[in-house]
């Protein structure tokens, strides 16, 4: 077959980049604060894909530790931490949005402009 469909690191990275940039667009352009939070989640996911992909394709050889074979899964562990932080962020962020909504009856980010001049 002339058509090589072999999947490698660049493909995953490209997917992650697209995900990240969609998230970025959402963060920049959405009025609704919850939409902004969702976009942030997309970006964090993109980062996670990158971490896992690098771990999978560049550090996939087991090492020998005291006679036992171990894979160095630092990427996975980092992704777990990112998930932890993302969960915390979502919780706090949504709480903030709800507080804001309660005080202002609005979740529009572009109305949050009192911090100027």
């Amino acid at each position: 077959m002339s058509f090589n469909l072999s999947v490698g690191l660049p493909h995953y990275l490209l997917v992650a980049a697209m995900l990240f940039c969609f998230g970025l667009y959402g963060v920049f352009s959405k009025k609704n604060a919850i939409a902004v939070l969702m976009s942030l989640e997309l970006m964090l996911n993109a980062v996670n894909i990158n971490l896992v992909a690098f771990n999978r394709f560049l550090f996939n050889k087991p090492i020998d530790v005291q006679g036992v074979k171990h894979y160095l899964l630092a990427g996975h562990v980092s992704a777990i931490f990112v998930i932890v932080v993302a969960a915390a962020e979502v919780a706090v962020g949504l709480a903030l949005v709800i507080t804001m909504y309660r005080n202002r009856l609005s979740t529009n980010v572009d109305e949050l402009d009192w911090l100027k001049w």
Binding site: L24, Y25, V27, F28, S29, K30, K31, N32, A35, V109, D110
Partner: peptide, 11 residues
């Protein structure tokens, strides 16, 4: 879920 005025720049 509307776009803000900066949508174009964001894009």
């Amino acid at each position: 879920n509307p776009d803000s005025r900066n949508a174009v720049f964001g894009a």
